[in-house]
Amino acid sequence: MEYEILIPSMLVIGLYIITYGLYKKGLVNRRWHVNLWNLIIFIAFIISGIGGFILLFMLEYGLKAPFNQQLLYWHVEAGVGLVIITIFHFHYYKGSVYRVFGVR
């Protein structure tokens, strides 16, 4: 099973640049851009986070399902995307991030 790092990373970065560009050009409003990326981060979290949690639970309690291998693969791929989307999440909520870390 060969994991891809560059393809999901480039895909996510490219898509963010497009929607950020659309927002900056005034073609979409900030709410649309933020809601879209919140939806994407939620989907990535479901696949990677919840998927990983299911795998961990099954590993811990000795359960096995035929979808484990596929779930592990998509857990990793969505995880790669999730890391990058999390950085974007910080980017569009940078005001809140500064407050949380006491920067401002």
């Binding site: 795998l55 099954m58 590993l59 000795g62 359960l63 096995k64 399902a65 035929p66 979808f67 484990n68 291998q69 592990l72």
Partner: peptide, 13 residues
Amino acid sequence: SLEGSCATSCPYG
């Protein structure tokens, strides 16, 4: 399936 039935197989399949 419980691990007992396939104790020596990969947990990730």
